[in-house]
Structures are given as structure tokens and as C-alpha cells.
Amino acid sequence: MFTIELTLKHTAMPLSVQKKEQEAAEALYGSIVNDVRSGSGQWLEMTCDQIPNKKVTVLASEVAAVQIFEKAAGVAGGRPPGFFALSADQ
């Protein structure tokens, strides 16, 4: 399961949706980045694969950051969200 997480301007709590396939997650991530770069003030509508009736719609100009990460099945496995993580191997 892959999570696409949005951070909005002036909002402390992030919004997220999950996609089962990596290709679908990458496509959604790319679409969000392109809409934010264009600055056209479009609405971004996202649906969630994990919770079928979950929909999130935000104004592209209000997106401050977007990230994609793989949701781990267990607590110890997978990649943690964020831009910096230390590995126990180091």
C-alpha cells in the first residue's frame, strides 16, 4: 500500500489517501505536482483505495508539500514517511 500525503498551507494536519499499486500512486503524485506547479487554481480530487468511500478535494494553490511513501505491513518494516530517516544499519 502506498500513501500520498498532502500538507496544506496554514494547516497543521496533513491529508492522505492510499493506493494499492505503485503505478497508480506515482501517477497521482505526478498529477498533484504538475497541478501545483501550474498554479492555475484547479481543484484536486483524490480517492482512496483502502477506504473506498473516502474522497479528498483541495485547491492546488493551497498545497505546500506532497510526499509519497510505502506503508509498511508491520511496525518494523517498510520505509518511514518523511524526507530524512536514519537506518539502524549505519
Rank of each mutant, 00 (worst) to 15 (best):
M1V: 09
V58W: 04
C48A: 05
P80N: 04
K55M: 09
I51L: 13
V36L: 08
K9S: 09
C48R: 03
S16L: 06
S31L: 10
T11L: 10
V56R: 00
Q22F: 07
Q42E: 15
S61A: 12
A85I: 02
A12Y: 01
Q67I: 02
G77Q: 09
A76L: 11
E45W: 03
G30M: 04
V36R: 11
S61T: 15
A60N: 02
R79Y: 04
L44Q: 07
M46Y: 05
S38K: 14
R79M: 08
V33R: 13
A72T: 06
E26R: 12
V58Y: 01
E62F: 11
Y29V: 00
E21T: 08
R79G: 04
V66A: 10
I32W: 03
S16R: 10
Q42G: 07
G82Q: 04
A85L: 02
V36H: 05
D49Q: 05
L28D: 07
D89G: 03
V17R: 00
V56S: 05
S31M: 14
S40V: 09
E62Q: 13
V56L: 08
A85H: 10
S87N: 10
K19C: 07
P80S: 06
L8F: 02
L28A: 12
S87Y: 06
L28Q: 09
S38Q: 14
S87Q: 13
A73M: 11
V63R: 09
E62A: 05
R37T: 11
E45H: 09
A12I: 01
S31F: 11
G77A: 13
F69P: 00
G30H: 06
L8S: 03
I4G: 01
M13N: 10
G82S: 08
A64N: 14
I51T: 15
R37I: 04
G82I: 03
I68P: 00
P14F: 04
C48P: 04
A73R: 12
C48E: 02
M1A: 11
E26D: 14
A60H: 01
L44P: 01
S40G: 11
E5Y: 00
S40T: 06
F83M: 07
K20E: 13
R37F: 08
G39E: 10
F2E: 00
G39H: 09
V66E: 03
I51E: 12
